[in-house]
Computed example of a mutant assay.
Amino acid sequence: MTGQTQLPPLREVIAAHGLSASKALGQNFLFDEQLLARIAAIPGTLKDRPVLEVGPGPGGLTRALLRAGARVTAIEMDRRCLPALAELAEAFPGQLTVIEGDALKLDHAALFAEPWAIVANLPYNVGTALFTGWLSGEAWPPAWSSLTLMFQLEVANRIVAEPGTDAYGRLAVLAQWRSKPKLAMKVHRSAFTPPPKVMSAIVHVEPAEAPAGVSARMLERVTEAAFGQRRKMLRQSLKGLPGALDALATLGIDPARRAETLSVDEFVAVARELTA
Rank of each mutant, 00 (worst) to 15 (best):
V214H: 08
L7V: 06
T193S: 14
G240I: 02
F92G: 15
H108I: 11
A247M: 08
R158P: 03
R258N: 11
T128V: 15
G240M: 03
M1D: 09
P141F: 02
D102E: 03
A143T: 15
A109M: 12
R235H: 09
L245Y: 05
I39C: 02
K239E: 12
R257V: 06
E220Q: 04
T62M: 02
E33K: 15
A74N: 08
L149V: 13
P8F: 10
M199H: 15
P8V: 14
S20C: 08
E273N: 11
V270S: 11
S22V: 01
K239F: 02
S179R: 05
A269W: 02
D107E: 15
G101K: 04
E162G: 07
W116V: 06
V270K: 02
L88Y: 01
T132Y: 00
P181I: 05
P181G: 07
A256Y: 09
A269K: 01
R178M: 04
A247W: 04
A117C: 14
P181E: 06
A86C: 13
T148V: 14
E154I: 13
A244Y: 00
V119S: 04
A161C: 08
D166L: 00
L245G: 11
A139I: 15
L104E: 13
L122M: 05
E138K: 01
A24R: 14
A172I: 06
L274S: 12
G101F: 06
V72E: 06
G57F: 07
G243H: 02
G69F: 04
K180T: 15
R221P: 01
L19S: 02
T193C: 04
T148Y: 04
A269P: 12
G243A: 14
N125Y: 10
V203D: 05
Q27R: 02
L171F: 12
L149E: 09
P163S: 08
R170E: 15
I42V: 08
T45Q: 08
V268R: 00
C81T: 01
S22Q: 01
P142C: 07
A109Y: 12
A86T: 10
G243V: 03
A259G: 14
T223K: 05
E53H: 12
V119G: 06
V126S: 02
R158N: 01
D265F: 00
G60C: 06
A139Q: 14
P83K: 07
R67I: 10
S146R: 12
R178I: 11
L219C: 07
F267H: 01
L36R: 04
S263I: 02
A191N: 11
P142A: 03
Y168A: 06
H17P: 11
E162P: 13
P195E: 03
L241N: 15
A86G: 14
